[in-house]
Lab assay of single mutants.
Amino acid sequence: VTTYKLVINGKTLKGETTTKAVDAETAEKAFKQYANDNGVDAVWTYDDATKTFTVTEMV
């Protein structure tokens, strides 16, 4: 189990959160659900070296 981080650069929601998951795909599903629940529709990137997902909402 690995800890993954999500950085949110949204128009109305900004911040960071983490989740523990067995792999990046599982973490991504959890983070996308979190973003969807909070109304963030954005572009996703992932950095495997830092285990960090970044979501940037387009203006």
Rank of each mutant, 00 (worst) to 15 (best):
T3F: 06
Y4G: 01
K5C: 07
K5T: 13
L6T: 01
L6V: 03
L6K: 01
V7M: 04
I8G: 03
I8W: 14
N9T: 07
N9I: 14
G10C: 15
G10P: 03
K11T: 13
K11C: 14
T12I: 11
T12M: 09
L13K: 06
L13Y: 14
K14R: 12
K14W: 12
G15L: 15
G15T: 14
E16T: 13
E16N: 07
T18I: 08
T18R: 05
T18W: 14
T19I: 15
T19N: 03
T19E: 03
K20N: 11
K20A: 09
K20Y: 11
A21H: 02
D23M: 03
D23L: 03
D23K: 03
A24C: 14
A24W: 14
E25M: 10
T26P: 01
T26C: 05
A27E: 00
E28D: 02
E28M: 14
E28W: 15
E28T: 03
K29L: 09
A30H: 14
A30S: 07
F31G: 00
K32S: 03
K32Q: 07
K32N: 03
K32G: 02
K32F: 05
K32A: 05
A35S: 05
A35P: 02
A35K: 04
A35W: 15
N36L: 15
N36H: 14
N36Y: 14
D37I: 14
N38Y: 15
N38C: 15
G39L: 15
V40H: 06
V40I: 14
V40D: 04
V40Y: 10
V40W: 15
V43L: 09
W44E: 00
W44V: 02
T45G: 04
T45R: 06
T45K: 07
Y46L: 01
D47N: 08
D47S: 04
D47R: 01
D48T: 06
A49Y: 08
A49P: 05
T50K: 06
T50E: 05
K51Q: 06
T52H: 00
T52V: 04
T54P: 00
V55S: 03
V55E: 00
V55D: 01
T56D: 07
T56Y: 11
E57T: 06
E57Y: 13
V59P: 12
